[in-house]
Design a protein around this nucleic acid. Structure first.
Lengths: 323, 323
DNA sequence: TGGGTATGATTAAACGTTAAAGCAGGGAGC
DNA sequence: GCTCCCTGCTTTAACGTTTAATCATACCCA
């Protein structure tokens, strides 16, 4: 590993001068700068980020904590975050909070111990990460209004709900995965709030909820809105087993626009998060916080986008149903 | 940030003694150790990993480069890797090689510049990452036999192929995503090698291949083996559109056991990678390499596991077909 | 009593970098 | 000719930690 000192002794100049020449900070003559630059290039000099980190107190590393790296949204978040971070010369250290709030705290602690400059946290369902000695931005939990960046889950719910309502559905099943998840509750409350008066809705949860879907259809429901594409896929299978077809007998919607949803048959109508925007804002926010702004900034909310595909259509009319 | 020095002056002892007491290395009296320990705990002292890194030349960080963080397998790899790394007190810095070999090199370079102790690389399709100044373990490319850990893709292919053959299929379509991918080619060659003589196989690729599947079925094929669950899902949709049912008319298999495959209808027969084992071995291997073993170690291969679900069954007999 | 040694600490240096202060020399202004 | 300032470089110190070398003290044994 070639260091600043070697360049210095090579050229017969002090280490400080080399540092100044390379960073363009102090006063160095143009010729000297040139000599140092070229010698550095010759030797393939790479500054030691570690040494810089020690000196400056900044590691240039962000910690990313996710509730479960297995979350199907994680890849896209990680990718966009990593690209956005690159743009700011930041690295991303990952940690998994493995399903428990305790592990989440530990993960945060480990990252802080490693000297990360800031933390990006997608919190464990139903938890709110405790304050940390470094700036922290919370992703996707609107409840904590400060220093957070979130998709507008309620707005997304409203989007699908209006779509379904406009198609003419008035008897609707809403299916969530886990009532503990605030994100899912937000989506659902967005849905119900946007439905016109007189709409009949039933809210179901989890696997047990899935199994009750065919029954609900039999008793008159014509659409199923879920809080996740994965849930929608399960419902699709359940319906198929029951001999019901989508969208002829039942309209079906998902959430998140996961990779497989456009390959489904029929392709799934869903609501997409603008993951790129969320990641960009999050990185932006945290870099600003690291840059010294200590006062909490208001949380940002990123609109969701309705993706209409083939799994939704008008409900069967009553005439058709009882000839 | 409380440092060793503060503890030292607090107690009235030298910094070296504090360091020795805390790490248990030098000669310190038991009472002094106790005093120092308790004072450190009181102050909430956390050693500066950065300073240690500078002194020791080890950052305790591993770089993970993936071709595309959007890869559906990434979450599981990242999670297991991160847990396994935790066990060795290592952190994981992620980087995305964004689809090109050039970006892959740059990503590797950035990580090396950050001082990672080792690199874990899932190479870009069809590329072989150039040597780096730190130990590197290549994941999932059997071709590079040194310092690599890979699922036994060919073996996995053989597993499904034998399953399909045992069910009685003799006219089979094999569908790959991209012939550039060595992994996919390995899977396919494993399949074809394991099929009994006299089996009629057609190999198709990509979207165009998917669209040709119904035609192949019409001309007598009874099973479709794909190199990815996502591909299988697309085929499933295509078949549905063509009015063909799975597994009655066509047996269908995937690869990788992605999250959604058990929610499909019918639940997909597929081949699972033992991601945990791969990650563990990779971490093991790289820590050994970092620990000084400079000689290349033979690549390891981890067996795959056949997951039989509902998308495969006996082919229709000829009698049934022409009554 | 004196030399050897074990014990428990200290000092000094180092890892690679940078910020601040200092210093030598030259040119300008009066 | 004196001061003053500007330029270009050097010295010093520091970030927090570890390690090798050193040192003082007390103890043991001959």
């Amino acid at each position: 590993m070639v260091s600043i000192k070697q360049i210095a002794t090579d050229i017969g100049v002090s280490a400080a001068t080399v540092s100044n020449a390379l960073t363009g900070k102090g006063r160095v003559s143009p010729e000297m700068i040139e000599r140092i630059r070229s010698r550095a290039a010759e030797l393939g000099y790479r500054p030691s980020i570690t040494a810089r980190a020690l000196k400056s107190g900044r590691t240039g590393i962000l910690g990313l904590v996710m509730p479960d790296l297995t979350n199907p949204l994680f890849p896209r978040i990680a990718q966009t975050l990593s690209i956005a971070a690159d743009g700011h010369r930041l690295g991303i250290l990952i940690a998994d909070s493995r399903g428990s709030a305790d592990e989440q705290s530990e993960a945060l602690g480990r990252l802080v111990d490693r000297g990360v400059d800031g933390l990006l946290v997608v919190p464990q369902k139903g938890t709110s990460p405790e304050p940390q000695p470094v700036p922290m931005v919370v992703i996707n939990t609107a409840s904590d209004p400060n220093n957070s960046v979130s998709a507008d889950h309620a707005g997304g719910g409203a989007l699908v709900a209006r779509h379904i309502a406009e198609l003419g559905h008035r008897n609707i099943v809403i299916l969530g995965g886990d009532p503990i998840s605030e994100v899912q509750r937000d989506r659902i409350s967005g849905m119900t709030a946007a439905l016109p008066d007189g709409t009949n809705t039933t809210v179901l949860w989890g696997d047990e909820g899935i199994s009750r879907v065919p029954g609900e259809i039999a008793s008159g429901a014509t659409a199923v809105m879920t809080t996740s594409d994965l849930l929608a896929l399960s419902v699709r299978s359940q319906l198929m087993r029951a001999g019901l077809s989508v969208p002829e007998d039942v309209s079906l919607t998902g959430f998140d626009d996961l990779s497989f949803s456009k390959s489904m048959h029929p392709a799934l109508t869903t609501v997409a998060q603008n993951v790129e925007a969320i990641a960009d804002r999050a990185i932006d926010l945290i870099t600003r916080m690291i840059g010294g702004k200590t006062q909490p900034e208001a949380g940002e909310t990123v609109p969701m986008r309705l993706v209409v595909r083939d799994s939704t259509s008008n409900p069967k009319t009553n005439q058709e149903e009882m000839p």
